[in-house]
Design a protein around this nucleic acid. Structure first.
Lengths: 208, 208
DNA sequence: CAATAACGCTACCACACAGTAAACAAAATT
DNA sequence: AATTTTGTTTACTGTGTGGTAGCGTTATTG
């Protein structure tokens, strides 16, 4: 037991540090973007040195991919823990709000809107793609369900709704609103949701 | 006259090449993004060598800033040439459609959604900022006008409408729709406009 | 045909960053 | 206490890129 205990303790510490690294990665990635983030930045932020960092992740690509995977996992978990009381649109609203609040708190955007190279890199990761596909089919069901109930426009293809939905999670309007319009986070989230679901023209749907 | 003629001819050729350089810059920038675009790329695409490129633009930052300024100038020109018959919302729709078609044709997105560093670089350029401010005030007037006429929701602040509008010009949903949903350009534009103006929920405003 | 001016280009520098090898410290075991 | 083992760091390499110095090359003029 002592050896087992020690090993598991070590593993625990290892896992803890891995989480700290991923946290730091997310922060730096959100603030500087992929290209400007250096491995030295990450190591410095965590308080370890670069070779130790490479003990955990074999490359920069690997590190960033892992950070994105963790984010997707969190999103999936958040979705599954949501109550069904709000209906499909209520759940979609809640997840989008969650994603925007993650970003406003200095976290990563869901989509790598940044550059084609990052997107390509991620699509080379089977684990990442699997997660994306799974989350996508979950949300697609919700969208189809909502359309059946008349809660979403039937004249829009599923993909249009889904992709514009995803894009809202990395919408630069969020940053601009905070920087230049000086709105607080609650107002930003409320307005972004309103524009997405109801549009900018009047006569629109009622807020859920 | 012969000397003068020669000089003006040279200037003309110089200007022409400058345009070719800016075209190439826009193409590469749109496809690879700022960080991955190298000066060698641009020189190769234009068919000149790097030092010749530096005869025209004193740095990479300068080159990219100039490309963005040219884009804004084009947008302003397009706006001013629009007829007033469609009303303010019609003009806003038309400009947004124009911007999306520019991008779909391989051009630049309006906003540097890419990275904070690019945004910061651009805001250091007085000429760029001036153009942005001018275009922004033009569009703000249109928005206020439309709100007065009841054509845009009065419960949304001007800035919210403007920033979400700008963000649509660099919305990654456009690329995803083309890549994965296999929609043609017309359909993409129509759906993006529909979602922005009318939202994804039913019971919305009529298309202008 | 010779001299000169203008122009563009090859070859280079400095630097930053991803990734690694080998020295070093600390703990665990005997 | 001696030895092995584990984990960490300092110091380095190689590569790619922004930016430049100085050399060919062509056109122009007398």
């Amino acid at each position: 037991m002592s050896i087992l205990g020690k090993l598991s303790f070590k593993d625990q510490a290892f896992k803890l540090r891995e989480d700290a690294i991923l946290d730091a990665t997310a922060r730096i990635l959100a603030s500087k973007g992929f290209d400007l983030m250096t491995m030295d930045d990450v190591a410095l932020e965590v308080g370890i040195s670069k070779p130790s960092l490479y003990k955990h992740f074999k490359s920069k690509e690997d590190l960033v991919t892992e950070a994105m995977i963790r984010l997707l996992t969190g999103a999936q978990a958040f979705w599954e823990q949501l109550p069904d009381t709000g209906g499909p649109v209520g759940k979609l609203r809640a997840l989008l709000e969650w994603a925007m609040r993650v970003r406003l708190a200095g976290g990563l955007p869901f989509l790598p809107s940044t550059s084609p190279q990052v997107r390509e890199m991620l699509t080379r990761s089977l684990r990442y793609v699997t997660k994306v596909v799974k989350l996508n089919s979950t949300l697609k069901s919700a969208v189809q369900d909502a359309k059946k109930q008349g809660l979403l426009r039937r004249d829009l293809p599923d993909d249009v709704i889904l992709f514009t939905y995803y894009a809202r999670t990395c919408d630069p309007a969020v940053e601009y609103l905070r920087l230049y319009a000086k709105l607080d986070d609650d107002a930003i989230v409320a307005h972004m949701l309103a524009v997405f679901f109801e549009g900018v023209q009047p006569g629109g749907a009622t807020a859920s």
